[in-house]
């Protein structure tokens, strides 16, 4: 019985460590492949582990007069994570699925607004994965 508890204890630790390490590596991959020196990261990594049709969502403020870049990754090939930008009233302002699953998109913001960014897995490619979104702004 003691061995069984030890086994599952180890499984738990290894599983959590692996998922965290996976998210960590994907964030760096996503940054390296979608951000050039023109775009400065906002210093944060937005991520969640998703299954099936789950959707990750968070809000952010886009300031007027700034051009932003959003990059979305879930693995080591580009375009596996579908992302969209909606306003406070759920009007869709952008959806990557309508733009060939582009792994990044730029947003020229005329006036300061709050937006909701959401991401989901491309179900043709993945049934689970670490959804990672990065935001940068143009210098």
């Amino acid at each position: 019985m003691k061995n069984i508890f030890t086994f599952f204890g180890l499984l738990l630790i290894l599983g959590a460590t692996k998922l965290n390490a996976q998210c960590d590596t994907i964030a760096n991959f996503c940054h390296q492949n979608n951000f050039t020196v023109d775009y400065v990261s906002d210093g944060q990594n937005y991520r969640a582990f998703l299954f099936g049709d789950q959707e990750a969502e968070f809000e952010t403020t886009f300031f007027g007069g700034v051009t932003y870049r959003i990059a979305a990754c879930t693995g080591f090939s580009q375009g596996d994570l579908i992302f969209s930008v909606k306003d406070q009233n759920n009007n869709v302002l952008f959806d990557s699925i309508e733009n060939q699953n582009s792994p990044y998109w730029n947003f020229k913001v005329e006036n300061t607004i709050t937006v909701k960014i959401s991401a989901k897995l491309d179900d043709l490619e993945n049934s689970s994965g670490c959804a990672t979104i990065l935001i940068g702004f143009k210098q």
Partner: peptide, 16 residues
């Protein structure tokens, strides 16, 4: 809907 990193809202970058 899964909140990202436990936070549903990002904080603007000080550099920005």
């Amino acid at each position: 809907v899964v909140p990202v990193g436990g936070a549903m809202f990002s904080v603007p970058s000080p550099i920005q």
